[in-house]
Structure formats: C-alpha cells, structure tokens
C-alpha cells in the first residue's frame, strides 16, 4: 500500500516532468549548420579529447555513454547519447546546435562554456559509439600517424619521481611480436596516488611520446607522517601496473585529536570544568540531603522524654 502511494506519486511527478519538458523543448537549429559535418578530423585524437570534455561537462547528467539501440534512460532523465536512434536522427550540425543553444529547460546552452573546437570534439566522442558513422578523415597523413597504435608488448615499466621539480616520469619499454625491442609510442598511461579508499588520479590516459615516456606533475598531495606517498602507474587500462613509494617532503608530526582534555576523550582526560560541575553539583545536592537527614535527628531530639 505504502509502495503503491509512492509509485503513484512518482508517476505523477515524472509525468509532470515530461509534460514540462515536452512543452519547453525548444531546440534551435541554425539553418546553415543543419547539414554540416564534423568540422574536425574524426580520429582517435579528437575522440579522446572529446571524452575528456564529456567527462568534465556532460557526464554529470548524461552519465556514462554506451552504445545501444534506443535510449534506455528513464523519461525525463538526460538521455544516453550513445543510442543509435539519436545518432542516426541527428546530423553533426544539428547536435552542434543543440549543444550550443540548449533547449531552454533541462539542457543548458554550452556556447559560452565550451570552445567551438571542444564542442566538435564531444560530438566526435558521441559518434564513436555509433559504428556506422563515417566522419571526415584528416586531410594530411600526419594526423593518421598520431592514431597509430602500439601493437607490441610492454616489457618494462619504470616509475620515477623527482623530488625537487615534483615531476613524475613513467618510462615504458616494449618489444614486438618477434621479440625485438621497440619504443612503445602512443600507449595510454594513467598515474594515481594510492589512498585508503580509491585512488587519486593525477593524469588519465596520457599517451607516451617518441621516447616511450610520459611526465606529469604532482600537485599538493597530502603525505604520510614520514613524507611518503605511493604512486601507481597503469598502462592499457591496468594490464601492466607499477607502484613506487616516493618521498615528497620531510614529513610532519601528527597530533592525535584524542590527546588532551576533551568531551570526547577517555575518562582520565575529562575536562576540568566538567569535573567541577559534576562534583560541585552532586556534592551540593548530597550536602542538602545530608543536612535534611540531620534535621530528622533534630526532630527526634525534640521528642517528649
């Protein structure tokens, strides 16, 4: 019964939300952009760049994108932009306009927040979930080289930290299928700081350069009392990892909040004022009680003898 009421209430509120949305849905499509195509090269570089823009700006509402036939999200919620219906029903230009101007209600305009380039990159990222999509290729061959994937095997992973410049360097070594040493270029490396719960990302999916290394800076990260932190480098989404315990500073002395006299401390650390209140109050009342008992004796003494 309780559930029924809740269900009915949620149904009503959702339908109100939908009605509100339908009424307010007001996509403005600029005519000159209606049939436009992606204005950047549709390659791995722009897709990856689009992912980072998406993660920062869109993911809070649209959540993780996944490829699917039709949008499976609840009505009223921000749709899964990887659904085919959406990708096929909209040209790049239409998506660009929707992204730029919003719909006047739930979808805000991103014109002022994202550069034109970034907006196209996000679209490239969305399109990467749609297999049948064919975007414009880069004009020159150079861009294609960037997308060249390292096919070999990572044989060595070195994680080092320079205390003075606070730069973390991850050096990779690899070999190809026939066992020859090759420099692993364009390999995605992520670096984290190990924490008690989860890990703190420093850089995500950074690609190795021509020397097979990446560098990233360590910001202001809290250390243990000895000044150490543990770094983790992860290659190819965790297939190869390395850990290093590095010293960042000289450490510090931790003060236990239970030390000293506090209301939350143990009994031997009771604050003085509390003891005074307790014993003062209790002794005062016990004193009055004692005095009253004494009066009983005085009454007894006044009896007729």
């Amino acid at each position: 019964m309780k559930k029924n009421i809740l269900n009915i209430l949620s149904l009503i509120s959702i339908s109100l939300l939908i009605v509100g949305n339908v009424q307010a849905q007001n996509w403005t499509i600029d005519p000159e952009l209606k049939d436009a195509q992606l204005k950047i090269a549709y390659d791995e570089a722009s897709i990856d760049a689009g992912k980072s823009v998406y993660d920062k700006n869109c993911k809070a509402c649209h959540l993780e994108i996944s490829a699917e036939e039709n949008n499976s999200r609840a009505a009223g919620a921000a749709p899964n932009l990887g659904n085919k219906e959406f990708n096929k029903g909209n040209t790049d230009g239409e998506i660009f306009c929707k992204l730029s101007h919003g719909n006047g209600s739930s979808m805000p305009p991103y014109e002022a927040m994202l550069s034109e380039d970034d907006r196209w990159k996000v679209i490239a990222y969305m399109r990467s979930f749609c297999e049948s999509y064919e975007g414009p290729k880069a004009d020159d061959g150079a861009a294609a080289v960037v997308a060249e994937k390292f096919e070999g095997e990572i044989s060595k992973l070195d994680l080092s930290f320079d205390k003075d410049s606070k730069v973390i360097t991850v050096q990779l070594e690899g070999k190809d299928s026939s066992g020859n040493k090759v420099v692993p270029k364009n390999v995605k490396v992520s670096v984290f700081v190990k924490r008690a719960f989860g890990q703190l990302p420093l850089c995500a999916d950074k690609k190795t350069d021509d020397k097979g290394q990446i560098t990233t800076e360590l910001g202001d990260v809290p250390t243990d009392t000895a000044g150490f932190i543990t770094l983790i480098a992860s290659v190819n989404g965790g297939k190869t990892t390395a850990e290093a315990n590095v010293q960042v500073n000289e450490g510090y002395t931790w003060v236990n909040p239970l030390d000293g006299t506090h209301l939350w401390a143990t009994r031997d650390k009771t604050p003085l004022w509390l003891m005074i209140m307790y014993f003062g109050g209790t002794l005062l009342v016990l004193g009055v009680i004692g005095w009253s008992v004494l009066q009983l004796f005085r009454i007894w003494n006044l009896r007729e003898r």
Partner: peptide, 21 residues
C-alpha cells in the same frame, strides 16, 4: 514517627527542611 509530638520547635524544623528540599 521519630517521636513526633508536634511541638513548635519540631514544626519549625519540619517546615524549613521541607521547604529547602
């Protein structure tokens, strides 16, 4: 009864003690 006889002295003590309590 603690030997209560109702003398003014006893009443005085009684009234005062009750009042304080």
């Amino acid at each position: 009864s603690l030997g209560w006889v109702g003398t003014p002295g006893q009443y005085k003590i009684l009234h005062r003690t009750i009042r304080v309590l």
